[in-house]
Amino acid sequence: MNLAEHANARLSDWPALSRGRACCGARDCLCAGAQEIVHFHGDNEVDVHLTHAMIDRLRPALRNSSALKVSAASGWITVRLEAGSDIDLLATLVSAALLATGSQQGATESARTDPCTRCSSPASRRQPTRWSRRAFGRCRT
């Protein structure tokens, strides 16, 4: 079992999260209600929807981690899983994401305009139809 599978199994046990289908096409997605929170992209990359406000709040701590990729243009961050401790970091960030989306008014609406890092990549910006017509933030099982 690779690190992403371990992380997915660990987070899937959380009562606040349920499995869904990611709008970006990620193979695994975890949601809080209708809000997409976690996308698993491959064996070692995971996107977490922290929201812009939470990223701004945590930015000093986020900058210190080499396992994180933070984009100024997105409320999503990417966690690179290279060691077991990165799963602990991911779990902490998912807790923060649950807090952020639970306290943010209109979180589902913001997710529609804030696609994950895979949908925010330069390649997807060249082909916006790949994601622009999909309803972001609607977790589907």
Rank of each mutant, 00 (worst) to 15 (best):
6 H>A: 14
6 H>Y: 05
7 A>K: 03
7 A>P: 09
8 N>W: 12
8 N>F: 13
10 R>H: 06
10 R>C: 09
12 S>W: 02
13 D>G: 14
13 D>L: 11
15 P>S: 04
15 P>G: 00
16 A>C: 04
16 A>K: 05
17 L>C: 09
17 L>N: 06
17 L>R: 08
17 L>Q: 07
18 S>W: 00
19 R>A: 08
19 R>T: 08
24 C>Q: 00
26 A>H: 01
26 A>Y: 01
28 D>L: 07
29 C>V: 06
29 C>R: 07
29 C>A: 15
30 L>K: 03
31 C>Q: 04
32 A>L: 09
32 A>W: 05
32 A>H: 14
34 A>H: 09
34 A>P: 14
35 Q>S: 15
37 I>P: 15
38 V>F: 08
38 V>H: 07
40 F>V: 15
42 G>A: 12
42 G>Q: 06
42 G>M: 07
43 D>Q: 14
45 E>L: 13
45 E>G: 13
47 D>R: 01
47 D>G: 07
48 V>P: 10
49 H>A: 13
50 L>A: 03
51 T>D: 01
51 T>H: 02
56 D>Y: 02
57 R>M: 07
59 R>N: 03
61 A>H: 00
61 A>E: 03
64 N>Q: 10
64 N>V: 04
64 N>R: 05
65 S>C: 03
65 S>H: 04
65 S>I: 00
69 K>I: 02
69 K>H: 05
70 V>Q: 00
70 V>F: 02
71 S>Q: 04
71 S>C: 04
73 A>E: 02
74 S>L: 02
74 S>N: 01
77 I>C: 10
77 I>F: 04
77 I>N: 01
78 T>I: 03
78 T>W: 01
80 R>T: 09
80 R>P: 00
80 R>D: 01
86 D>K: 05
87 I>K: 04
87 I>W: 11
88 D>E: 14
88 D>T: 13
88 D>K: 08
91 A>D: 09
91 A>Q: 03
91 A>S: 15
92 T>C: 09
93 L>M: 08
93 L>Y: 08
93 L>C: 08
94 V>I: 06
94 V>G: 06
96 A>I: 00
97 A>T: 10
100 A>R: 03
103 S>P: 02
104 Q>E: 13
104 Q>R: 12
104 Q>M: 13
104 Q>L: 15
105 Q>S: 12
106 G>P: 04
108 T>P: 08
108 T>L: 11
109 E>M: 11
112 R>I: 06
113 T>H: 10
114 D>K: 07
116 C>L: 11
117 T>K: 04
117 T>V: 08
117 T>L: 14
119 C>I: 04
119 C>F: 11
119 C>E: 05
129 T>L: 14
129 T>F: 11
129 T>Q: 09
129 T>M: 10
132 S>Q: 08
132 S>C: 08
133 R>C: 12
136 F>T: 01
137 G>V: 05
137 G>F: 08
138 R>Q: 13
138 R>M: 13
139 C>T: 12
140 R>W: 10
141 T>V: 14
141 T>G: 14
141 T>A: 15
